[in-house]
Design a protein around this nucleic acid. Structure first.
Lengths: 219, 219
DNA sequence: AATAATTTTTAGACTAATCTAAAAATATAT
DNA sequence: ATATATTTTTAGATTAGTCTAAAAATTATT
């Protein structure tokens, strides 16, 4: 059965909504992710259901079948491996690679992606710290805590970001914060969740509540 | 102006026909390359003409504009660079890479392809010996002669193939012939253009006229 | 429970890319 | 040069993916 690029993108959108713990993905939430009308979503969801990639009960949202889930997982695998390639081999910055990976993830060959995986040294996480599923679809797990849950005096290493939009990543770059940065909490300002931190044992900076919420660290 | 993947494929098809020295590409020749009906070609050619990528006079075939030519050249550049990547970095065989490169060539980013070029060491020829245009669209040239024009006693090194279909390349592999093979002509059999050759100064083999016609060598 | 607001689906239309069948134009052969 | 064959174009239909506007279903509010 052939699956179009558009269908793949819908599967990914649904997957990303379900990933956040929702029991099913609403038509509206999908239309926002895909930047299309709700009517288009209804049409497409019916097509995915007919192909046994999704389960759709009218007015009750969409889930993925095992097959739909597998396809979305493999798209995620491809996306993240290509991001590693672009950063590690072609020297792009972590905020520059998303769009390119969005295109590259639709390249078919499974053999190619498995070889790419090997070529890159079987990375477990992408340049934003997101886990890369292996060839069987298994995601690596990792002990990680958002910075806002840290207490004064605690230390940790940045291992991921909750949001990987270009502006946010560029802002982190400006601050000198990236994957691998060592952090110690010096002070916390509860009124807006901001904090003063010691960065890489050398520089004191103040970061906003938004940043605290979106940084994942390993203790 | 946005150019669809389909339009890109038509541009490439037209380009490849014109490349063989034809003054213009006929509707029929394009429909054969694209494996579509002649009617579809007429439709598409009109669209390309409207976008100023092709020049079309009814019943008189198609040419490419400077812009159309440039796009086709850049597609060729991308295709061939990706082939080098697949063979040099992911260890695919020269007969396995065409289909994957057909997909990869449609990835947009020019910056990415220029970086890929550098990463690969700015190769001038792809795994089949075809020249890779540089970032400005310039093709490398090379002194090359088809094997059938060689005389008994002459020697040369294989640098390219006229046809790069999977069966032909696999047949060459079976014979132990590839880019870089050293050849000396021992005998020529005029009645069917076959020849007996000395391969890599070690092995005597007989090759058919078809092979002689499709191998390019440097003297 | 009835009404209002929101979400989802249906209906009908549009575009890109394709097709078949028929008509028109060009090329070939007697 | 006329008839035949081939090539190209036109006409009309089809499918995937999209849209807007309206109808239907669900959820929230009084």
């Amino acid at each position: 059965m052939k699956i179009s690029k558009t269908e793949e993108n819908y599967l990914k959108a649904i997957f990303s909504i379900l990933e956040k713990g929702k029991p099913s993905a609403s038509t509206n939430s999908i239309s926002q992710k895909m930047e299309t009308s709700a009517a288009s979503v209804t049409d497409m969801v019916k097509r995915l259901a007919k192909k046994k990639l999704a389960i759709h009960e009218s007015h009750k949202g969409v889930k993925l079948t095992k097959e739909g889930n597998k396809i979305a997982t493999m798209l995620t695998r491809k996306h993240r491996l290509w991001e590693v390639f672009l950063v590690d081999k072609l020297d792009f910055l972590w905020d520059e690679v998303h769009e390119m990976a969005e295109e590259l993830e639709h390249i078919q060959s499974k053999e190619m992606i498995d070889r790419l995986d090997n070529f890159l040294g079987n990375p477990k996480f992408d340049p934003h710290g997101d886990p890369i599923p292996d060839a069987d679809g298994k995601f690596a797990t990792r002990q990680q805590t958002p910075l806002n849950e840290f207490k004064v005096g605690e230390k940790g290493t940045v291992v991921g970001v909750r949001e990987s939009s270009t502006p946010f990543l560029q802002y982190l770059d400006q601050l000198g914060l990236g994957l691998g940065s060592k952090i110690e909490i010096l002070e916390k300002y509860e009124y807006d969740n901001s904090a003063k931190i010691l960065l890489n044992k050398s520089k004191e900076i103040v970061i906003t509540g938004k940043v605290c919420l979106n940084l994942f660290l390993q203790k």
